[in-house]
């Protein structure tokens, strides 16, 4: 499912426009599994699946498979319906240099939210 992120994001012209200044690589952790997502000018340029040896990333988003599953469900219940809701209830941790994440928060909410309805 995570692999569909590229087509979901890159196929959404408005979302790509929103992220047109984003150049970063972030780690997406879903329970025991992890992906490195590289973004260039708002487009997903590469998604690599772990496990990794000495991975490099700017920031990491880590949550359990259950929490992401609820977040990506078609109608997430209260507390699972937004990245900040997950953060509020300590289900999602954001680590590293958060500057690109916070400076482009609408974009990253859109990127992670684009998988909604697939879980």
């Amino acid at each position: 499912m995570i692999e569909t992120l590229a087509e979901r994001v890159n196929g959404d012209a408005r979302l790509v426009h929103r992220g047109r200044f984003v150049e970063t690589t972030f780690l997406l952790e879903v329970g025991d599994e992890a992906w490195l997502v590289r973004i260039e000018e708002g487009r997903i340029a590469e998604i690599r699946r772990g496990p990794f040896v000495m991975p490099r990333w700017t920031f990491a988003l880590r949550a359990s498979a259950e929490a992401w599953g609820q977040f990506w469900s078609a109608s997430p219940p209260p507390g699972f319906h937004d990245l900040f809701a997950l953060i509020r209830f300590k289900r999602l941790s954001v680590e590293g240099d958060m500057h690109p994440f916070m400076a482009n928060l609408f974009y990253f909410k859109g990127v992670l939210g684009s998988l909604r309805g697939q879980a």
Partner: peptide, 19 residues
């Protein structure tokens, strides 16, 4: 994060959007 010159004030809306 809500008030620094290198992050646009639009972040306030992005923070509350999920509310």
């Amino acid at each position: 994060w809500l008030h620094r010159p290198d992050v646009h004030g639009e972040v306030s809306a992005a923070v509350v959007s999920g509310l």
